[in-house]
Computed example of a mutant assay.
Amino acid sequence: MEFVKSFKQTKLIKYLFIALLGSILLAVSSKIKIPFYPVPMTMQTFVVLFIGVAFGWKLGLATISLYLFEGILGLPVFSGTPEKGIGIVYFTGPTMGYLVGFIIAVYLAGKFKYDENLFKTFFKLSFATSFIYLFGMLWLGNLIGWDKPIFKLGAQPFLLAELLKILIATLAIKQIKKLRKIV
């Protein structure tokens, strides 16, 4: 009985460590801006998909929740922090919907089954990513008003870069899935 308890504690510590590493990876991905037209691109959405596929939906949700919690507490993990504010004030700003969308995206990316069909994989990853933009635009519309061009402001500038990130994840799906065996 003591062995089972020790094994469960070891497994919990392993999962906490992996979630912490994932949240750090996501924080780093939010800070690295890649020049892209018309707006710079970060690799956050790619890392959200990566975490979902590599960690599975349960550990993926824990990882994204930890990341959001770190940001709400005031750690400068979000893109634009600390320059544009920190904590709950930043979280409830214009990007909150996108950040909340990470939860749905990681869940779907972790829940889907992936096979050799790259077209289906691309579709599944695109579907998961679409919730980041859906929640983002819904929040943005409520925040700045529906009379503004929400799609043009909140999604259109990012779509080309997003398709590129989804394509990279699609082409690397076999390698990413291998990590799930380790986790």
Results as ranks from 00 to 15, higher is better:
M1N: 11
E2Y: 10
K5L: 08
S6T: 03
K8Y: 11
Q9T: 07
T10Y: 09
Y15N: 08
Y15P: 01
L16W: 02
F17S: 14
I18K: 00
L20F: 15
L20R: 00
S23L: 07
I24G: 07
I24V: 15
L25T: 05
A27Q: 07
V28I: 15
S29A: 15
S29M: 12
I32P: 00
K33W: 06
Y37S: 13
P38E: 09
T45D: 07
T45S: 14
V48T: 08
F50D: 03
V53K: 02
V53T: 05
A54T: 01
F55A: 02
G56N: 05
W57I: 00
K58F: 12
L59G: 01
G60C: 06
G60L: 03
G60F: 01
Y67A: 04
Y67W: 09
Y67E: 06
L68I: 15
E70Y: 09
G71Y: 03
G71M: 06
V77Q: 02
V77L: 10
S79P: 05
S79T: 13
G80H: 05
P82T: 13
P82L: 10
E83T: 13
I86F: 08
G87L: 12
V89W: 00
G93F: 11
G93S: 15
T95R: 01
T95V: 10
M96I: 03
M96Q: 13
Y98Q: 10
Y98L: 08
Y98F: 14
I103R: 01
I103V: 14
Y107V: 04
Y107S: 03
L108M: 12
K111C: 05
K113R: 13
F119C: 07
K124I: 03
L125M: 13
L125V: 11
S126K: 05
F127N: 03
F131P: 02
L134D: 05
L134M: 10
F135K: 00
G141E: 10
N142D: 07
N142S: 09
I144Q: 09
I144V: 15
W146V: 12
K148T: 05
I150R: 02
I150P: 06
I150Y: 05
I150F: 04
F151D: 04
F151Y: 14
K152T: 11
L153G: 00
L153P: 00
Q156V: 06
Q156D: 06
F158E: 07
L159W: 05
L160N: 00
A161I: 00
E162I: 00
E162N: 14
L167Q: 05
L167T: 15
L167Y: 11
I168S: 04
I168E: 04
T170E: 09
I173T: 01
K174S: 11
K174R: 13
Q175I: 11
I176V: 13
K177A: 06
K177W: 00
R180A: 09
R180M: 08
K181A: 12
